[in-house]
Design a protein around this nucleic acid. Sequence first.
RNA 1: GGGGUGGUAGUUCAGCUCGGUUAGAACGCCGGCCUGUCACGUCGGAGGUCGCGGGUUCAAAUCCCGUCCACCCCGCCA
Length: 587
Amino acid sequence: MGEWRRTSECGAPRRGDIGREIVVMGWVDGRRDHGGVVFIDLRDRSGLVQVVFNPEESRDAHDTAGGLRSEYVVAVRGTVRERPPETLNPSLATGEVEIKAEEVRVLNDAQTPPFGIEDDTNVAESTRLKYRYLDLRRPAAQEKLLFRHRLAKSIRDYLDRAGYVEIETPILTRSTPEGARDYLVPSRVNQGSFFALPQSPQLFKQILMVAGMDRYFQIVRCFRDEDLRADRQPEFTQVDIEASFVTPEAIYELIEGLLEVAFALRGIALQRPFPRLTYDEAIARYGIDRPDTRFGLELADVTEALRTAELRVFREAAEKGGLIKALAVPEGGRLSRKDLDTLPDEVSQFGAKGVAWARLTPEGWQSPIAKFLSDEQRRAVEVATGAEQGSVILFLADKAKVVNDSLAHLRLVIGDRLGMIPRDENALLWVTDFPLFEYSEEEKRAVAIHHPFTAPRDEDLELLESAPLKVRSRAYDVVWNGTEIGGGSIRIHRRDIQERVFRQLGIGEEEARAKFGFLLDALSYGAPPHGGIALGLDRLAMLLSGSASLRDVIAFPKTQRAACLMTEAPSEVDPRQLRELGLKIDG
RNA sequence: GGGGUGGUAGUUCAGCUCGGUUAGAACGCCGGCCUGUCACGUCGGAGGUCGCGGGUUCAAAUCCCGUCCACCCCGCCA
């Protein structure tokens, strides 16, 4: 580019710039060669501008233009001029002007790209990920990264204004029991020992509270070696927050303000305060702890009403401590017999063996199970579900988890199919009072629902040893349109309570001291009451930018097998590296 | 670990059910022509490991078995 200096971005020139001599640099988006005059669209991050090469105005530039191809990198010195009136292009921000090229320099040529650099691309994602640097040249892709930048910036500014301090915590840290599988990093200096990459900076932020930092935040990478989904990457970014001397209410207020700022970037105003729902209520009414409350279609528990029904699946579910729940779909005529027949396929993935249904017609119940229910039982179901003439009632009877998972899924499928979900609404809510523990069939013991540092509710403290599964926690999630976008809790700040919780989790005194000694020590040196929350920045960026996948808002994402198609990571390593680490590959 | 969808030209796809000429289309690419286009136009051309391996068959893109990769879901992910 010699001594040339870029004086304008491609997307900048407007009517007011007419007559200015400028230098633009960018990529050739396309070339239209008329034999005489040649047009080039030049693209950079800011947009597109048309450059005109006229052989009568500059022979050299025109000659060079003839050899340009897509994605060549060029610099153009020229004059902004008005387009002839009949050639204005209203679909281009710069469409009222063009650049008359006086001199052009090819800064780099380019191979023909494997796919066109355009927004409406229909190219396999694996191809786009392999050539991510080309994929990211697409304006739509760049817009998502730019939005993510603005989102992170406004969150940072908001928390700074609120007195929160961003503090970095270690990436090489120690593996802890509980929770997700760790990514491990072998230590060369201490052979046979491993660091773990943090699943979150949980313990460090608590210790910063003990250290008196008062209000901490960090926009921080977290790592979990678990299987991937469209909304789950092995490394992801969290807005991690912790504060001393807070109640849940203080956290709610802080986060509602933060989300207000975030949604404002999309011109969305939020209703505050957000509604609250206890965990028990969420499960009862929606079958899930992250309900989409943009629409009704709530579940009803009809276990008691149908406990004695003449139907074996119902009776057995009730006898074995399971549930019978029902869902009334208004205007059920819109669900055809064929629709109803496909419902069992929808729920088999959750272990459900079937879905019973009933149509409420003027002639009464039209249903394969009608003859097994008494008039009284049918009336009780109608009352419980709020079913009316024309409704279709769906029934599930099984173990509680199967029933709730299945109906929660059916609620979404039917709500979507019948167009009951108002797409332009934003339903934000807090789900509170999660249980502290749940029983793990796999491990045959209680495990923490949130994490082992979550405080029990004071009034449930006495149940910790006698009825641990009944203890409610001071944990909360923030849910948006059926997606969990963040969760947190008030933490345990007393050593004795932390030790009792560890004991319930099957972590003995010795293990607790070995693995969490530093935390227990810290708690015994004047730890203030504290609590916090973590928001999923990738998920927020994904949802606010209308993306279908987390991969769209991460510059260099991993595939479902946790691989990077561009760098081909993970890879084998040199045997010498393994020797230095004292590692042997088995098999 | 399990269930599902897909893999054919650089790209997006058709062909596969019912095995049988030279595996097609569009876009892109290359060359010629063209002085106001912006999805430029027009004439011509090149381009294929039918994901990979094995099997059945006179004959396989097509049928069978295995395997790899990508995506979606269940399990898993405090």
